[in-house]
Amino acid sequence: MSIPALTIPLREMILKYPYLEDFFISLGLKDYHVDLSCAEYVDQLSDGQIEDLGMDREQLISNYTEYFQKMAEIALRTTERVRSITIIGGRDKTGQAENLSFTMKTGDIICVVGPTGSGKSRLLADIECLAQRDTPTGRQILINDSVPNEDKRFTVEHKLIAQLSQNMNFIMDLTVQEFITMHAESRMIENVEETVQSVIVCANELAGEKFSLDTPVTSLSGGQSRALMIADTALLSSSPIVLIDEIENAGVDREKSLELLVKEEKIVLMSTHDPILALMGHKRMVIKNGGISQIVETCAQERSNLMLLQQFDGTMIRLRNMIRSGEKIDFDIKNLFGL
């Protein structure tokens, strides 16, 4: 692929692969729409220009070739789809064996429970770097039931976990539309506009209060930001696993959020101690002493308890909305809770 790319005139190459333009723009180069091949173009740049680029001619050409290949890979989505991830147990901080092999499949909602410092970040780090019995925990991670290739480890294109943490901020000063467009463009998808629209529609379905395309991201409320990031991760992120750090019960529809992620074939890992969220999960991974101490499956009794908890939750939301709209809660609420 690299040889013809260097000999075809740049004008033609850019027409065929528009993303090549970004390579030249990012270097601050102009006048690259020429009938010269990349090699010829680089050759005719002045020594002063080369000096300013911070790369010599050879490095420039080799970066161009690499850029072309990497971007083509991303655009073609040649990477294998992740259908399942298996954790083969290692040992906890005291050296005790975990003795387990746990497989998570797309559409699964797994809750991760355990006190702060119990080893949750270690577990995530193991998954993220596709540990092969070479991390302090001795765990091994399999993808689609087999050992992943060494070259898959540590690369951006194969980033496995999208993390939706509670204390995230937007630092870009953009509108919602500009922001999601920027993300969509970086994924090099074809129908950017359409996808951006659907992310925003979807986010509005999850958010308690609606927001528009031209709301600056920095003025979104906590719930709205959360809803936007959940919709964005579901529809635009390439990572097969989504890690959610507690979804607070305000401003975002938790049930719909999880439904969306499951529908988009994500593996959902949820770090939570909220009984409703935890019981919404199919399984709970209990972390203790740096190890996975047990896997709890949500049972029938728990599922029916969940329904009751959700009713209480619905009542709490109604009361919250009453407060929001200036009403008084000066009546006997025992009935509301069936007490």
């Binding site: 999208a162 993390q163 204390n167 901020n169 937007f170 630092i171 994924r187 990031m229 964005d232 991760t233």
Partner: peptide
Amino acid sequence: DIVSQAEREV
């Protein structure tokens, strides 16, 4: 960890 997932990816 300070920025949003989308910003991180971009």
